[in-house]
């Protein structure tokens, strides 16, 4: 049920990677997600935006099981998340998560940050884990920092390492939770460039961000949330040219006038 979606949702060609149905979440008495329905097709590049407190971060934290929810389902190809959260670890294997505050492990080198899950979760031998990690570090243009510690890197570098770390597990879908919000302005571009390259490689992405330039360039779908609901879900072009919901218009006007 897409409330008040005035434009047809872009047709998804293949089987969805993730299908969210009737998702509801409460923090105590606070109803933070209200009847969310959303399909993420293979190769889709979805940007989720909206004012702060609209529930967008909570939504993608639900998708990889970091937040429990009380009603609805999130279906993956081989796992279904519901209020009991039984399949959480299976669902999590299919998602990679990039956090606003990077959350690199400060006591491990860049390389060890990347190889930890390869070795402990996928049980790869050390050599192979390092090869995989170096491949992804090269993809985010930071292979020379493999032996550095996170504290020795700039924010932009740390976030690129965090992206490489998430990619190492070869997830079906990458989740980004405001990946550039904690960065100084001059570092935002290097992270966005990596994400744009990633989008070009066909990885499925769901990205919470305020970077409308990025959204316009990369996203094929825009989801606009307000007060826990999806109030607008449209193709990128339609959203920017003729978003219908007054809240979405207001949001766009505010963001684009800056």
């Amino acid at each position: 049920m897409l409330t008040q979606a005035p434009h047809p949702v872009p047709a998804v060609q293949s089987i969805p990677h993730v299908r969210i149905e009737g998702l509801n979440k409460w923090f105590g008495a606070l109803h933070v997600l209200k009847n969310i329905d959303l399909s993420v097709g293979a190769g889709a590049r979805i940007v989720v935006c909206g004012p702060s407190g609209s529930g967008k971060s909570t939504l993608i934290r639900c998708i990889n099981g970091l937040e429990p929810f009380q009603k609805g389902t999130i279906q993956f190809e081989a796992a279904t998340l519901d209020k009991d959260g039984r399949d959480t670890s299976k669902a999590r294997r299919q998602t990679g998560m990039v956090f606003q505050s990077f959350n690199l492990f400060p006591h491990l080198t860049v390389l060890a940050n990347c190889t930890l899950a390869l070795r402990r979760v996928l049980l790869k031998p050390a050599r192979e884990a390092e090869e995989i990690a170096m491949r992804h570090l090269t993809a985010v243009h930071i292979p020379e920092k493999a032996q550095a510690y996170p504290a020795q890197l700039s924010g932009g570098q740390q976030q690129r390492v965090a992206i490489a770390r998430a990619l190492c597990l070869n997830p079906r879908i990458m989740l980004f939770d405001e990946p550039t919000s904690a960065l100084d302005p001059e570092m935002i571009k290097e992270v966005l460039d990596v994400m744009i390259a990633l989008a070009g490689s066909g990885v499925t992405m769901v990205c919470v961000t305020h970077e409308m330039g990025f959204a316009r360039e990369v996203a094929d779908e825009i989801v606009f949330m307000d007060e826990g609901r999806i109030v607008e879900h449209a193709s990128s072009r339609d959203f920017f040219s003729r978003a219908a919901h007054p809240r979405a218009r207001l949001f766009l006007d505010t963001i684009l006038s800056n």
């Binding site: 970091l66 990679g96 998560m97 956090f99």
Partner: peptide, 10 residues
């Protein structure tokens, strides 16, 4: 965030 990152990495 450290625990969350560890969980996100399974």
């Amino acid at each position: 965030g450290q625990q969350e990152a560890a969980r996100a990495l399974s």
